[in-house]
Amino acid sequence: MLPPPEEIKSALEQLLPGVSLTLDAGGLIVVPNDLVAVCRCLKENERFSLDYLANLTAVDYPAEQRMDVVYHLYSMAKKHGPVTLKVKLDRNQPVVASVTPIWRGAEFQEREAYDLFGVRFEGHPDLRRILMWEGFEGHPMRKDYVVEDQDVLG
């Protein structure tokens, strides 16, 4: 069974000295610089074995000038989950380390977050647009994106 978030938080802080996490509505807020260490620990530690990244997406908060990247982790080995991780990034310069080296399945999801939100994933093997075409300008899921033809008939 998966321990409650408070226990995961204290276990991680014990295992990784210098890492500090915050609890937020059942999720763990990670400092961007600690993300790779936390993810690797959650995947490789026998207690968690979170070997499956089910979801990776971004959330835009223009009012707070913030861009969150959210990770949902499950364990296929232990049949438990999810564990939610969040990193809070600067909306004007959203850069975070890629988790593709940890979970291979992150590759396309990070490309999607890059395509639609403009989050740059450092260390991604092939970071380019996945849904929109090459030559498309802007990131359409950002809340300040203006659609070209707003007119009803235009």
């Binding site: 075409w133 090459e134 030559g135 300008e137 802007g138 235009g154």
Partner: peptide
Amino acid sequence: EFGASGLAPR
């Protein structure tokens, strides 16, 4: 064709 913000021509 694919343009910068949609199809060209619209």
